[in-house]
């Protein structure tokens, strides 16, 4: 069935997806809130940037990240001057790449859920003497809960399903950057079809279960929709 290398790949994938999802919820929620509420001129450009990973081939994103994080790139020079080495082919490098890649899947559902609330809940909260911060925590976020759940599930699932960017940034170092999708690719390359079958079936069942759970959840409380599927 699953070899140790396969299990290591699964473990690494789960670790990556969990880290990325947590970070994205922390970073993506304020960004989504800003996008939902702002009337600034910057809304357009920022929205376009956030959505870019949806339409860009992963190889393009991966290529630019490789340059950016490499020894000649600005981030690479920064990390080297801090004595951290360069990020490509490391786990933190994968996390950064995945953050960008999965960003729209987290930001969009939260933004939609906040936009769907309209102005009224925040206005009511203000007339009940809740300041902006109080109102954000006790009204906006609880009302956006379905959107937050959708965002977390999509962010996690999409990171698990990542391949192109990881191939460009991480290569296939076992235990460090070799995630399930890469492991499957390697099995197929090596004509280990049985192994590839097991892992692929596991991915298929995982993805289907996650989406099924999500849709059942969405049906139960029809609020805070989301626009993009994986």
């Amino acid at each position: 069935m699953l070899s140790d290398a396969d299990l290591a790949a699964i473990w690494l994938t789960l670790k990556l997806a969990t880290t990325v999802t947590l970070l994205l919820m922390i970073l993506g929620t304020p960004l989504a809130y800003w996008l939902a509420k702002t009337r600034s001129w910057w809304k357009g450009p920022v929205s376009a940037l956030v959505t870019l990973p949806l339409v860009l081939p992963p190889t393009v994103l991966g290529f630019y990240l490789l340059i950016f994080m490499g020894p000649q790139g600005p981030l690479g020079q920064l990390t080297e001057s801090l004595g951290l080495g360069t990020l490509p082919f490391t786990f933190p490098g994968l996390v950064i790449a995945s953050l960008l890649y999965s960003l729209p899947f987290v930001v969009q559902p939260i933004q939609n859920a906040i936009e769907a609330q309209g102005q009224r809940p925040a206005e009511v909260a203000a007339t009940l003497r809740a300041g902006p911060w109080d109102s954000f925590w006790h009204v906006t976020l609880p009302l956006a809960k379905p959107g937050l759940v959708t965002a977390a599930v999509l962010g996690f699932a999409h990171t698990v399903g990542e391949f192109g960017v990881i191939l460009m940034i991480g290569g296939n170092i076992p235990g460090v950057t070799k995630v399930v999708s890469i492991q499957i690719y390697d099995h197929v390359e090596a004509l280990e079809y049985t192994q590839a079958h097991w892992l692929s079936a596991a991915m298929l069942i995982f993805s289907f279960s996650v989406l099924l759970a999500l849709y059942v959840l969405q049906r139960r409380r029809a609020a805070g929709g989301w626009r993009y599927g994986p």
Binding site: P121, V124, T127, A130, G131, P132, S135
Partner: peptide, 17 residues
């Protein structure tokens, strides 16, 4: 600001949370 005014406001729609 609104949240510092000592007002009660009843909207046309009940607008309960």
């Amino acid at each position: 600001p609104v949240h510092k005014r000592p007002i009660g406001y009843v909207f046309q729609q009940p607008s309960l949370f």
